[in-house]
């Protein structure tokens, strides 16, 4: 059973990489990335803008959403959960384009509107994953910690956060990967980014522009995803990895 599963997984992987390779061969033979080759300076400027928008909005979201998630899970403030989640949900359910437009309404044209819009957009996954992570910490563990005389803040730092870290990082990872895609819309509020080439490509029916913008965005998303996978491995205590393995086996 396990053998056949592994074979199927291998075949799917091979097909995937094959398609990817075929795509790049096609793209290069049709000089789809000619725009990058011809205008490297512009490319790096747009890439820089794109990354700046994603990272600044993401960092701000982490700085607000993780403490909010922690705040909501304190027994005293548990009742505020619906309110905070409700507000964050609002940011998420409104289409990203509308959030951008609203932000532009307040902040005018430019990069700050894009950063604020994406910041609002990233809050929900991070808050929800922080809450879920802390909630998933075994009550008996907390009980033992309390019974041994750990203070509430010691329980938070030594027990709750380390045990919730996997989930929190997963939330940040989700938020950032979504953001990289959404940041392509930043062009619409005059914030630049690789969206500039994508939209140019759409308007001019010029696939070289389109691909030169879209493919780097995709690669960036994959890169960030891998980076966070590694970060998860590096930051989460070894014992928890073993615990997860033990649970899955």
């Amino acid at each position: 059973m396990e053998r056949t599963n592994k074979t199927i997984a291998l075949i799917i992987k091979l097909i995937f990489w094959g398609l990817l390779a075929a795509f790049f061969v096609w793209a290069f033979t049709n000089s789809m990335f000619s725009t990058i080759v011809e205008q490297p300076d512009t490319f790096f400027r747009l890439l820089g803008e794109h990354v700046t928008i994603v990272l600044l909005s993401g960092a701000a979201a982490v700085l607000l959403a993780v403490p909010l998630g922690i705040f909501v899970t304190r027994p005293k403030f548990r009742k505020s959960e619906w309110l905070i989640i409700g507000i964050a949900n609002l940011g998420q359910t409104v289409p990203s384009l509308a959030v951008l437009a609203l932000a532009m309404g307040f902040l005018g044209i430019g990069i700050s509107a894009a950063i604020v819009a994406l910041f609002v957009y990233s809050l929900l996954p991070i808050i929800q994953n922080t809450i879920a992570g802390i909630d998933s910490v075994d009550d008996d563990m907390i009980d033992a910690a309390k019974g041994m005389g750990l203070t509430n803040s010691q329980i938070l730092w030594k027990i709750e956060l380390p045990n919730a870290l996997t989930s929190i990082i997963a939330g940040v990872r989700t938020a950032l990967v979504i953001n990289i895609g959404t940041a392509a819309l930043a062009y619409l509020v005059g914030a630049g980014g690789l969206g500039v080439w994508i939209f140019t490509g759409i308007r001019l029916f010029d696939n070289a522009f389109l691909m030169s913008g879209a493919v780097p965005v995709t690669l960036l998303a994959i890169l960030i995803d891998y980076l966070f996978k590694w970060l998860q491995f590096a930051l989460v205590p070894k014992g928890l990895r073993l615990a997860r393995k033990a649970q899955n086996s």
């Binding site: 008996d140 563990m141 033992a144 027990i159 045990n163 615990a243």
Partner: peptide, 8 residues
């Protein structure tokens, strides 16, 4: 349930 901390 012993309540040992898996992160330590």
């Amino acid at each position: 349930s012993n309540g040992l901390f898996p992160n330590m």
